[in-house]
Design a protein around this nucleic acid. Sequence first.
DNA 1: CATGAATGAGACTTCATTCAT
DNA 2: GATGAATGAAGTCTCATTCAT
Lengths: 204, 204, 204, 204
Amino acid sequence: MGRAVLGQVVIIEGEHNARRKPDSLARLKQAARKLFVERGFDATRPQDIAREAGLGHGTFYLHFADKRACFLSFVQEARQELDEQLHARLVPGAGLEQRITAMFGTIAEYAESHPGVLRAAMTDGRVIDAEGVEAKSLLALWGDDWAEALRGPAKDGGYDTDIIGQAIAGALCQAICETHQSGRSREALMKNLTRFLTRALRPD
Amino acid sequence: MGRAVLGQVVIIEGEHNARRKPDSLARLKQAARKLFVERGFDATRPQDIAREAGLGHGTFYLHFADKRACFLSFVQEARQELDEQLHARLVPGAGLEQRITAMFGTIAEYAESHPGVLRAAMTDGRVIDAEGVEAKSLLALWGDDWAEALRGPAKDGGYDTDIIGQAIAGALCQAICETHQSGRSREALMKNLTRFLTRALRPD
Amino acid sequence: MGRAVLGQVVIIEGEHNARRKPDSLARLKQAARKLFVERGFDATRPQDIAREAGLGHGTFYLHFADKRACFLSFVQEARQELDEQLHARLVPGAGLEQRITAMFGTIAEYAESHPGVLRAAMTDGRVIDAEGVEAKSLLALWGDDWAEALRGPAKDGGYDTDIIGQAIAGALCQAICETHQSGRSREALMKNLTRFLTRALRPD
Amino acid sequence: MGRAVLGQVVIIEGEHNARRKPDSLARLKQAARKLFVERGFDATRPQDIAREAGLGHGTFYLHFADKRACFLSFVQEARQELDEQLHARLVPGAGLEQRITAMFGTIAEYAESHPGVLRAAMTDGRVIDAEGVEAKSLLALWGDDWAEALRGPAKDGGYDTDIIGQAIAGALCQAICETHQSGRSREALMKNLTRFLTRALRPD
DNA sequence: CATGAATGAGACTTCATTCAT
DNA sequence: GATGAATGAAGTCTCATTCAT
């Protein structure tokens, strides 16, 4: 036929087409996490995320309204992951020291397996404020968690739990992040911090 | 003729020396601090700083090589201010609790009189890395200070001072910054943190 | 169900292949040439080139790393065009006068059909130096070509061919460019220059 | 004395004060020439010229209306210098070869003692066009001079002197400028060019 | 005359986002 | 859904020029 000259016949495999990208969203999220962690919010372009994911840049906007939404998604996911790990390890009737040890283990583990995520998620929080969402940084939210944890079961040691909750969150975040960079072992980290917190929180 | 006079006596006033604008650099620094604190590094344009200082945008570049240099200057100045206040209050022969109390008072005071400066100076540190300068964030440097302080006089309580130094810095920064926003009194803040740290650091 | 179909036949039109804009690079190059010729390197802004090409300014940077790269591309293209025309006309076994005549014809023709390109490409060469590329101006390179041409077949008339090569290139460029502006005919130009060179180069 | 605290007594030498700047214009011109030659028009800032001259930048505008005026002054001065040297050497009744030799010697001498001036003055001519002044480049004007020289005394060899005048100017400029850079001796340069032109211009 | 701090138009370039295919 | 060429607002920084001293 005449169109044999001008046209080509291409057979597209069913698999190829129907299921080749089962997960472009997932790949974008993973790429976003990697880059936000490595470079921070401002130095990461949607285009970079898409390329890292092996997708065209336009695809980014099929899955996220904009760059901020993508970052928010990253932060929330990180928070949720951590929360889940924390709750999974929570032993209801435990004493204070045990609770602290458990939380630590979880957090340190997380920090180790996702290096930099904590810091990234925590420090860039301000970016999101524009729309009124996420006014509190992830770190502050986490401080609230600690405050809550302190209020509950054990005596609160006479502390204002809001203040001490933030202090603990700050202490952990900073110690974990910096320690990770300086190559100290997780065991040393945990031993020191556990001891530190245990002493600080036990009743006189 | 007049020009036959070969020598002239000129009295230069001590004050003197033509100064059209008393302090454009000082005004820029002040404006920069205000905006970096309010908006962070990325959301502050050199132009905004200049306008805030009541100057043309070109003037900015008369005093700073670029935006990063301006931020660096801001951070260093904040750090130096705090350092000076800390050293002024340092009582050599004091016990641990007294030392902690003194450091706290100073820091809390500083945080109160310069709201947001601490956080701003601390979180945006990464920005500067490009040229290899300021690889450590201000917060990390401050953690090193605490580590040093712990090593010295008192027993270090069996801690790895590097780890605990970072923890303390993180605790203070986070507690102070968040507390400031939530409207808690400085007294409560100080009382709680002092107690917290004192307990954590005292020997068993 | 429909999706059970594993193979699809897709006819791709010969023309096809999604081409929103047939040739934005080509249009940019053409626009750049026009403006560099009319205004020179410094007076031409990337934005102007893009507008001349009917494109947004961002598009410019899709095709050139920066303004200098664009200029370099223009110069190289002009040089290549001329080279190709020169080589196409080269008659291997010809005598000196014939060779000169052939080169002239080509150059004069080129200068006439691309008015100003020669001069522009030649005089702004310095701009590019920054990166060490293109240290020699186009005119100087062309002088080298002439030197080479003189060395080969005919006697070199006892000349230092490097010097005389540059002299010829300069003579042609200047005569052609100025003559073009003063409205003299190409025939007159060619007749005069050929005679001039032929006399200068023939053996005593 | 009391005023020793607040004041300083400075003795300004008569020479220092009265005649120290006999010539800020001259110094500016010299500095401008140096920088225009080294960097070209666009890469030279009035500020640079003033600093090179050891003067404040404001002083520049006491002597030149703007940067273009300064460049124009440079070009005109260079041209005039060369003209003067040419006329000083001109021997009225000489034959063609002698005339050529004389002009060359002058030009080559000038180029050697003012390296780069020729090229700079010639290539940046376009800059000035804006006001309608100096539409012709210095090189073209010089080509006119040669045309004039050819028309007069000797036979013009049947040439269109306008064309050949430009060609000679271009040949000389290019050969001199490039040769200077490649470290060839002035003698070789002169010998070659004189021979070249003499042959080209002698009658058959 | 001389100065240099100050100015702001405008240059170059980036990047979040759109949209025709 | 997927793509990537195209866009232009906006950012950083330069530089010719002015003017109070």
